[in-house]
Amino acid sequence: MNVFRLAGDMTHLLSVVVLLLKIHTIKSCAGISLKTQELYAVVFAARYLDLFVHFVSLYNTVMKLVFLASSFSIVWYMKRHKIVRRTYDKDHDTFRHYVLVLPCLLLALLINEKFTFREVMWAFSIYLEAVAIFPQLVLLQRTRNIDNLTGQYVFFLGAYRVLYILNWIYRYFTEPHFVHWISWVAGIVQTLLYADFFYYYIMSWKNNVKLELPA
C-alpha cells in the first residue's frame, strides 16, 4: 500500500469519526443530509459484497466492516434516535434518491468490467459514490450556519477523494496492469464536485470567518 492510499483511507475514516463525534457526543445531526448517508450505506453494501468472496488482508476486511457498520449506524441514529432525529433538517434535505440511484444502476448495467452480478454491483457502487455527496452539498448551500464539525466532515471526505486520485497515479506507474477506467473517471467526477466547496472552505479558514456557501 502506498502513502497516498493510506492517507486517503485515514481521511475517509476521519470523516466518519468526525460525523460520529457530532452525532454521538453533541447528539446533533444538524446540517447533515440523511439522503447522502443512506446513499453511502447503499454504496458500501453494494461494493463490499466481495467480503464473502475475496480475502485481501485483515486491514481490508476490518476497514470494510467499519465503513459498513458506521454508515448504517449513522442512518439509524438520524432516523431512530429520539434526540438526534429531532435535529435533522428534514425540510431542507429534499433531494430525491431515485434521481441518483436509477441513472447509476442503468449506467452500471451498460458500463461494467464484466456482466456479472458482483461486477455490476461494483460499478453501481462506484457511480453512486461519485454523486452521493450531492444532497449533502445542496443541504450545505441551504444551511445558514454551517457548524465546524459539518464543514470538517465534508472537507475530510473531499480530501479522501483527492488522495485516492494521487494513489491511482502512483499505482499506474508502479503497477502496469492497474488500469480501472470506471473508478478513475467516476473518481475524478466525484472529486470535481468538491471543488466549489473546497474553495469556500479554504477561504473561510484563511479569512477566519464562518463557512457559508453562496446560494
Partner: peptide, 10 residues
C-alpha cells in the same frame, strides 16, 4: 491480478 487490485481498494 488486476481483479484483486480492484477489490483491495475501499
Amino acid at each position: 491480478d488486476s481483479e484483486d487490485a480492484k477489490h483491495d481498494e475501499l
